[in-house]
């Protein structure tokens, strides 16, 4: 089956996932179109992070189907490397490689994994670092950067692989409040450029501003979803209402 841009770029159908006897995802279905930005919100422990980690096969699933550009993620014969070239991921804890400078962090994967030309990669990496507004920090090591700066390097590192989809796993949760904004700005720029983004976030204001669609998960299922305006102002399910009441 070949994928065409008219079909969802990421599609989850009845995804089930358990850790041991604990069922974390209990039948999740959602579609993301190319260029769309979706935000997954919900109480902690509701399986949000697990959900997006399944999309690039960091976690495997027990039942259901996940496709990325028509590639079946739940296929045991899946070429994980091919999948991960399409899907970029940014983590809560940045997870930069501490022994490499910012520039090296960005350059490493395209050179090592994609075997691209070093000079070409370097140009692109410098441009990306400029794009995340970190000019001048190319030669700094992660330990010398603030959390927000590290997180932006991590975003640049993912972008260097030219992914079609970006996953953001609570990328501002570990940051100081004053650096949250700079990271959100970077993501906003990305979305404006037409990047397909899937975010797990607690930043409701940001979600409202940026998302095309909000998904609310609780206890492993999607309780409610919709465009931000409808979702935030006119939530139907009592669980969503309760959650929003607590958080807003």
């Amino acid at each position: 089956m070949t994928w065409t841009p008219q079909q969802p770029i990421v599609s989850l159908k009845d995804v089930h996932k358990s850790f041991g006897s604990v069922e974390v995802l209990r039948g999740i279905s959602l579609d993301v179109m190319k260029g769309e930005v979706i935000c997954i919100i919900g109480p902690s422990g509701s399986g949000k992070s697990t959900l997006i980690r399944c999309i690039n096969a960091l976690n495997d699933i027990q039942a259901g189907s996940i496709t990325v550009e028509g590639l079946e993620v739940n296929d045991p014969k899946l070429d994980k490397l091919a999948l991960r070239r399409k899907v970029g991921m940014v983590f809560q804890q940045y997870n930069l490689f501490p022994h490499k400078t910012a520039l090296q962090n960005v350059m490493m994967a395209p050179i090592k994994v994609l075997g691209q030309d070093r000079a070409e990669v370097e140009n692109r990496a410098r441009a990306l670092i400029a794009k995340v507004r970190l000019n001048g920090k190319e030669d700094a090591y992660p330990g010398e950067l603030s959390g927000g700066q590290q997180q932006r390097v991590a975003i640049a590192r993912s972008l260097a692989m030219n992914p079609d989809v970006m996953l953001f796993d609570e990328v501002t949760a570990a940051l100081d409040p004053e650096t949250v904004k700079e990271v959100l700005m970077t993501i906003k720029d990305l979305a404006a450029d037409g990047m397909t983004c899937i975010l797990v976030t607690h930043e409701m204001g940001f979600a409202r501003e940026i998302a095309d669609c909000i998904y609310f998960t609780d206890r492993g299922v999607i309780v409610e979803s919709g465009p931000p305006a409808t979702f935030f102002d006119n939530a139907q399910d009592p669980r969503t209402q309760q959650f929003l009441a607590q958080i807003l």
């Binding site: 690039n56 994980k80 490397l81 991921m89 994967a109 090592k112 994994v113 993912s158």
Partner: peptide, 9 residues
């Protein structure tokens, strides 16, 4: 995991 997500073998 970060390296895995970048497609490293």
């Amino acid at each position: 995991e970060a390296a895995e997500a970048l497609g490293y073998t």
